[in-house]
């Protein structure tokens, strides 16, 4: 049985690299990504699981990193926007569709869309796309453009 008290040293697989970190068991994944690793793409918003600004990918599925302990991420594969490298299909599609205004929500949407394409390599039904995108909020209401970006990813069959 794992038992962690006070500060513990753990290894996490983040963006394909093993990171060894000292964390408190109560540390949130979001805070560890941002403050210990300088991976600031995942954004703090509501911190309640409502907005999705903090979304990352865990083992290929979207996850709100404000609602996950860093110690739980041991043995899982974490992907953040930094791990997409700047030229991923989803990033290009967002640029092509102008799918942002202030950009605060963009990292979260990018990760949801990347996870959607990972789990559904071929265009899923409209209701599936809608269901996945409804997990995130955009206060600048770029929703139509974000929807367009998803269309571009599938139409151009970008990987």
């Amino acid at each position: 049985m794992v038992r962690y008290e006070n500060k513990v040293v753990i290894s996490l697989d983040i963006n394909g690299e093993t990171q060894t970190l000292a964390v408190r068991p109560a540390d949130l994944l979001l805070d560890v990504l941002r403050e210990q690793l300088g991976l600031t793409a995942a954004k703090p918003g509501c911190l309640n699981g409502d907005c999705g600004a903090c979304t990352v990918m865990v083992d290929g599925w979207p996850a709100k990193s404000c609602l996950m302990l860093a110690v739980e991420a041991e043995g899982r594969s974490i992907l953040t926007v930094e791990g997409l490298g700047g030229t991923a299909a989803v990033q290009k599609a967002f640029v092509e569709a102008n799918a942002f205004q202030c950009g605060y929500c963009t990292s979260g949407f990018l990760m949801v869309c990347h996870a959607l394409k990972t789990q559904h390599p071929s265009m899923p039904e409209e209701c599936v796309v809608e269901e996945w995108l409804q997990s995130n909020l955009c206060r600048c209401t770029s929703y139509r453009e974000i929807r367009k970006a998803v269309q571009i990813i599938y139409q151009q069959n970008m990987p």
């Binding site: 049985m1 794992v2 038992r3 962690y4 008290e5 006070n6 408190r24 068991p25 109560a26 540390d27 949130l28 805070d31 302990l69 110690v71």
Partner: peptide, 21 residues
Amino acid sequence: MIPFDFIYYRPDSLNEAAEVC
């Protein structure tokens, strides 16, 4: 941030979980 510390247990069996609780 959670502003206090707790101990984190990750048991591998039903017995371990109930015993630690």
